[in-house]
């Protein structure tokens, strides 16, 4: 669960990183757009994979928490 909470923070960090090596506006662009694109795609892929791994686990945690609890809630949500 904590991993799920931290994941967007990690994602934001990864997505904001290019700002660090980007030149100030007006300066001569000193880096490659294509490799920036590759970097962002890779970061994106990492997020997707981690989310895909976490997703089912979170669901099972959630259901494990709900099942012994009240049935009425699930009933209510089910229709």
């Amino acid at each position: 669960m904590d991993a799920a909470r931290l994941l967007p923070v990690l994602g934001a960090l990864l997505f904001l990183l290019p700002m660090l090596w980007s030149p100030l506006p007006g300066e001569e662009p000193g880096r490659s757009t294509a490799s920036d694109g590759l970097y962002l795609s890779a970061a994106w892929a990492v997020l997707i994979v981690v989310a895909a791994v976490l997703g089912p686990r979170l669901v099972s945690i959630e259901q494990g928490k709900r099942r012994p609890g009240d049935v009425s809630e699930t009933d209510d949500a089910g229709d």
Partner: peptide, 10 residues
């Protein structure tokens, strides 16, 4: 949107 969905738990 990617960040929002990856952080769906929030």
């Amino acid at each position: 949107p990617t960040l929002v969905f990856v952080g769906w738990w929030w």
